[in-house]
Design a protein around this nucleic acid. Structure first.
Length: 534
RNA sequence: GCGCCUGUAGCUCAGUUGGAUAGAGCGUCUGAUUACGGAUCAGAAGGUCGGGGGUUCGAAUCCCUCCAGGCGCGCCA
């Protein structure tokens, strides 16, 4: 990477100025303004004070030292502002990027090793099987699935799970609600009031266990919705199966043996406050029934068999639950940093100008399948992924469908389709790409061409940040930038037109191919289709 | 009351480890193609980055405080 070359040159010249700093400590950044060069470093600003020097003077000294050296990609350097060192590079560094993207290709370009040797268990969605997935749950589906793809490309062995709460109070309430709707009797207290309950009740045969039937019906529906937006899981973990295996008793025994369990007021408590939880939690109620917390602990304990790092993606309404789970897992011998909860803020849905509170209980909801039918899976998925999961998301179903052609996902996919169209057109004209080794890539000198390469060069770094920050939206933002760069290039730089000289045409054909690689990787990371035509 | 998240252009949102003149899409206005897909491109207008204080050579970013909004604080799940 070019930044490593520049940082190493800076480190060498700093040593000459009697400043010791590790290459990895030197920050290289892309200036906001093109006039400030291709790359910039603040290293003089950061180190000057420590050695009692004036930053600009130190910077000047470093520039002189590097200029006398032999980093041949540097065209010129300058000291700017309070002491920034700006590097102006030969376009050859971008031509190197082109060759790299093309030789590594879709399979290997921006495939990182940062996670190699580590495994991640990622749980997301895990909505109760008591109804269809609502449009809020779709956010966790899109997010979790894309995050898993990002982790995998970074070299983490990644295992995804959906925890199915297929026993307990909610499933029974749901079964009872189905019966009530079928028989036209009153809903149980706290029963499920959504329209879908009546619909499903009318499908329910009379000779089945409604609880059993209901949870299967709901789970099938959820699975179908998620699959329709290209969300898959490695494991659908059943709470029922877990409980039947005796895991709950084993977990309580293990916690008891570790000395964290108390009996108080006729109930059994876990001293989670010893690990930072705001209070202790009940494991077994005074009526002898375990709380939901117990199977949850068992499940999380077990997940460590399928990953060194266990991550839960949770909605904001569950964030209060994290300290107790973290406490319980530490008691079971899992270090604090091996469990991570990603708290995502909830989705507000707007339909026909009305904000809709998403609640399965009260029945005011928009199903994710309705959203997908209205706008298509890619529009829905991209809309979910465009935004940081830290902030509340507002999805206006009418705006998404109305935006139609101007939708951001089409902007990106259209770029990919255009690339495919160039290929088709080339074929129909009998134009083929010559071997890469015979191409004069230095013919690519126009700003549009270079900008496209600059954008492609950033993908590895973007991927790393997206994984580190658990932020798929960084990839989404990058894809839009790549699309803008490609459309700009396409507009200004003809490829197949008859007046384009053939060596330039060849270089541009390969440039187009490199963009295709970028789109293919980026769209795949987000689980979006890469259409050949639209 | 306490805890977590958020507050950036008219609207929806970007803005990694603190960097130079804070960006994009939509909307508004003005332009571009006898040429590979116009679902495109270029330009304009639009900002006290919620308010105030602090740290720093430098703050949308870090710290304090206030204001506003979302969520959570059960022997419910």
């Amino acid at each position: 990477m070019i930044t490593e070359v520049l940082a190493a040159a800076l480190a060498d010249s700093l040593r000459e100025s009697e400043v010791e700093i590790a290459v990895s400590e030197i920050q290289m950044e892309r200036p906001a303004l093109r006039e400030h060069g291709d790359w910039s470093s603040n290293v003089a600003l950061v180190t000057a004070k420590k050695v009692g020097r004036n930053p600009r003077e130190l910077a000047e000294e470093l520039v002189k030292a590097i200029e006398s050296g032999s980093v041949d990609l540097i065209e010129r350097m300058e000291v700017a502002g309070p002491g920034f060192i700006n590097f102006y590079l030969s376009p050859r560094w971008l031509h190197d990027v082109l060759i790299q993207v093309l030789t590594e290709g879709e399979e290997s370009y921006a495939r990182l090793e940062i996670g190699s040797g580590q495994s991640i268990n990622l749980e997301f969605v895990s909505a109760n099987p008591t109804g269809p997935l609502h449009a809020g749950g779709g956010r966790w589906g899109a997010y979790g699935d894309s995050l898993a793809r990002i982790f995998r490309r970074c070299g983490y062995q990644t295992f995804t799970e959906y925890y199915v709460n297929d026993r307990g109070l909610q499933t029974e309430l749901f079964g009872a609600s189905l019966i009530a709707r079928r028989d036209g009797t009153a809903l149980p207290e706290d029963g499920y009031a959504g329209e879908y309950v009546a619909e499903w009740a009318s499908e329910m045969p009379t000779n089945v266990d409604p609880v059993e039937w209901g949870r299967k019906r709901a789970l099938t529906d959820v699975q179908k919705s998620l699959a329709s937006m290209n969300v898959e899981f490695d494991n659908w973990a059943s709470e029922n199966a877990l409980v039947e295996s005796g895991a709950m008793e084993a977990t309580v025994a293990e916690l008891r043996a570790a000395g964290w369990v108390d009996e108080r007021d006729g109930a059994t408590w876990l001293r989670t406050s010893a690990f930072g939880d705001e209070k202790d939690r009940v494991l077994v109620k005074s009526d002898g029934e375990p709380t939901y917390f117990v199977p949850d602990i068992s499940y999380h304990h077990e997940k460590f068999e399928r990953g060194d790092l266990v991550i839960d993606v949770l909605g904001a309404d569950h964030h209060g639950y994290v300290p107790r789970m973290s406490a319980a897992l530490q008691m079971l011998g899992h270090p604090q940093e091996s469990y991570e909860a990603i708290i995502g803020q909830n989705v507000t849905l707007i339909k026909e100008g009305q904000e809709i509170k998403l609640s399965k209980r009260t029945g005011t909801m928009v199903e994710v399948s309705e959203l997908i039918e209205a706008v298509g899976p890619d529009v829905a998925r991209f809309a979910y992924l465009l935004q940081s999961v830290d902030s509340r998301q507002t999805i206006d179903i009418d705006v998404l469908s109305k935006q139609g052609n101007e939708n951001p996902v089409y902007y990106v996919q259209y770029a990919h389709a255009r690339i495919a169209a160039v290929g088709r057109e080339a074929t129909s004209r009998g134009i083929e790409r010559a071997p890469l080794t015979s191409i004069d890539v230095e013919l690519l000198t126009q700003e549009r061409e270079l900008e496209l390469l600059r954008c492609l060069s950033m993908l590895p770094e973007i991927l790393e940040i997206a994984a580190r920050d658990r932020a798929p939206h960084r990839v989404a933002t990058w894809l839009r930038e790549l699309a803008a760069a490609f459309h700009g290039f396409y507009h200004d730089c003809p490829v197949l037109r008859s007046d384009v000289e053939s060596s330039l045409q060849q270089a541009r054909l390969w440039l187009v191919e490199s963009a295709r690689v970028g789109f293919a990787i980026g769209l795949d990371l987000l689980g979006l289709a890469a259409p050949e035509q639209m």
